[in-house]
Amino acid sequence: MTFDPEAATRTPPKKVIFRVKRYNPETGKTWWDEYEVETYRGMTVLDALLKIKEEIDHTIVMRYSCRMGVCGSCGMIINGMPRLACQTQVAEVATEANPVITIEPLKNHPVLRDLVTDFTAFFEKHRSVKPYTIRKDKEELETGDMEYLMSPEEHKELYEYTLCIACGLCYSACPVAASDERFLGPQALTYVWRYVSDPRDEAWQERLEAVDVEGGPFSCHYAASCSAVCPKMVDPGAAIQRLRSALIKYRLGLYKKKKVAKKATRPAEQVKPKKPLPPEAQPVPGANIEAMEREPPTIPVEQLIA
């Protein structure tokens, strides 16, 4: 999403009408409510919604947390475009000629109530692509005392993709995810490419094999709406094209990962003897790691407090 400093610092219309799409799960009814809000310079859409909740209608429900575009909780469709409510200035979306802002819950995510959507399926897809570094030397991963080396150029290749805050705007904007429930979505596929292109990751082959399914990168048709709405400039559209192209090259026997990052080495006098795995890193006897990867164990809250 482009940032226009001129629009963002403008004074908004004195009074703005907010048309909010409501949903009540108890009755199953959907309707639109209108609220007139007095604005001030620098007011964000989230500020306005909170003002509505405090002063006009306490029943309106929305999700938010950090108020500064970091947590990715307050995604909603503002004037037809998925945006973060906390990052959208009222002045950006309302004009003197048309001082009306429509707010809807994110599309492609099931709605729980009013503007709150259910991200379970979205996070489930995120988890299914194993969004973490996988190394063959597991012992080294647990006891390692030095970093893996990476050049600034290699870092630049994937830095953009690491900025994802999983706000779900891209998934909401995607016209393929609008009908296909199997589609992993721009966010999850970007993570796949982020790790395939990461020189520190060693599981690129498994990752490419795993996304070669219905709902993988081939379901993307490059409408690029994901890149256009991303509040963090992650560019998921380009990531999916790179992933798809890599997968095609891999299948044709042409893809070769540049190199796997080596670990930094210490001067000889500082080298310490290799440590065995600490007890807390050892798998619990009888634990099925693969099953746990598929379905994470539920730990009762009491146990966590204890």
Binding site: T2, Y23, N24, P25, E26, G28, T30, I77, N79, G80, M81, P82, P105, L106, K107, N108, H109, P110, V111, L112, R113, T117, D118, A173, P175, A177, A178, S179, E181, Y222, A223, A224, S225, A228, V229, G237
Partner: peptide
């Protein structure tokens, strides 16, 4: 309560204005 499935479905493939994403001729 029930959750509201909120997918526009096939309409998103034939109507570019299901969402009004700016700077997105793609």
């Amino acid at each position: 309560g029930k959750v509201l499935p909120n997918r526009p479905g096939w309409l998103a493939s034939v109507n570019p204005w299901v969402l009004r994403v700016v700077n997105n001729p793609e």
